[in-house]
Simulated scan of single mutants.
Amino acid sequence: MDMKRKQLVRLGAGVAAGLGAAAIAWAGVAANAQDNAADNDFEAQIIGGQPAEEGQYPWLVGLGSAGEGTPWERQFCGGSLIAHDVVLTAAHCVEGTEDASELVVFSGSVDLESDEIVETAVTDFHIAEDYNDPIAMANDWALLKLAEEVDQEPIPLNTDPAAEFEVLETAGWGNTGEEYPTVAEWVEVPFVSDADCEAAYPGEVDAASMLCAGDLENGGVDSCQGDSGGPIMADNEGLTLVGIVSWGYGCAEAGNPGVYGEVADFDDAIDEVLAGWSVE
């Protein structure tokens, strides 16, 4: 099985030319996912989730390519609004981008076909300087600076890298196993300890910048292709952002939890970038 970044390029959509090698064409990913499902007697299906309600995750945004096509056609990753004009997403979603003008952000509704969707240009972006260090997919985060403020509520970041959880929530417009929905789906996923995460993926997990979540024994709940960059959240008297959808083997397979960038491990680096942008 191959490591799968949970990113999507829709065939037939108006996709920006600059997305580069990080943007995995769905045709190839789908073939691998189907093979893995057959091997494990599992039908990959946000897998096991349900449609999000309007206002449930006001900070959830879609990252898309500028140009022609509907928001649904152009969306290829997710993201989280962490300030009214800043989005946190996955580094692998933008690593092939040559210019910020190639990117746009969709906000204002969980339905990418809604008239309430607002499209906002991206004027700058920052990819983690230590992305892919010390191992592949480590420090998988990037920041997008928006051309104007978005009238939605940002999500606060978890700042405790030692925190452990019971159940987390993740959301996005990725593959459900049957379709790519126009309305974002969400699902609860059990937290997986660093030890169990490393046991699931020997030599492939950087505990300092990654966390895992999923049902190790049964599978069935997970993020999937198209959800990359989106949030995984903990409910501590209100939702906080604990991670960024990053990678995994297949989707929702038993023994193969989803892997997420752990924001508490790089929140200081995020603050440094935000401080630099604020004085420009």
Rank of each mutant, 00 (worst) to 15 (best):
T123S: 10
T123K: 11
T123N: 09
T123M: 06
D124E: 12
F125N: 01
F125C: 07
F125Q: 01
F125G: 04
H126V: 08
H126A: 14
H126G: 08
I127W: 05
I127Q: 08
I127A: 02
A128W: 04
A128Q: 07
A128S: 13
E129G: 08
E129C: 05
E129S: 11
E129I: 09
E129R: 11
D130K: 08
Y131K: 13
Y131I: 06
N132M: 08
N132K: 08
N132L: 01
P134K: 14
P134C: 13
I135V: 12
I135P: 09
A136G: 10
A136F: 08
A136M: 11
M137R: 14
M137V: 12
M137T: 13
M137A: 14
A138T: 04
A138N: 12
A138D: 04
A138E: 05
A138W: 01
N139W: 08
N139K: 07
N139R: 11
N139Y: 11
D140F: 04
D140S: 02
D140Q: 04
D140W: 06
D140L: 02
D140A: 03
W141L: 03
W141P: 06
A142P: 04
L143V: 06
L143Y: 04
L143F: 06
L143M: 12
L144D: 00
L144T: 04
L144N: 00
K145L: 07
K145I: 07
K145S: 02
L146R: 09
L146Y: 12
L146D: 08
A147T: 04
E148D: 11
E148T: 15
E148Q: 15
E148F: 13
E149N: 13
E149A: 12
V150N: 05
V150M: 04
V150P: 11
V150H: 09
D151R: 11
D151K: 10
Q152I: 00
Q152K: 00
Q152T: 02
E153T: 15
P154N: 05
I155L: 00
I155W: 06
I155K: 01
P156S: 07
P156H: 09
P156M: 04
L157W: 03
L157G: 03
L157K: 06
L157F: 08
N158M: 00
N158L: 03
N158I: 00
T159I: 02
T159C: 04
T159M: 01
T159D: 03
D160M: 03
D160W: 05
D160V: 06
D160E: 09
P161V: 12
P161T: 09
P161W: 13
A162H: 09
A162K: 05
A162G: 14
A162D: 14
A163L: 11
A163Q: 13
A163S: 10
A163V: 12
E164G: 11
E164P: 01
E164N: 11
E164Q: 15
E166V: 15
E166A: 15
V167I: 14
L168D: 06
L168E: 01
L168C: 02
L168Q: 03
L168V: 05
E169Y: 12
E169N: 14
E169T: 15
E169D: 14
T170C: 03
T170H: 09
A171Y: 08
A171W: 03
A171Q: 05
A171F: 06
G172N: 05
G172F: 05
W173R: 04
W173Q: 00
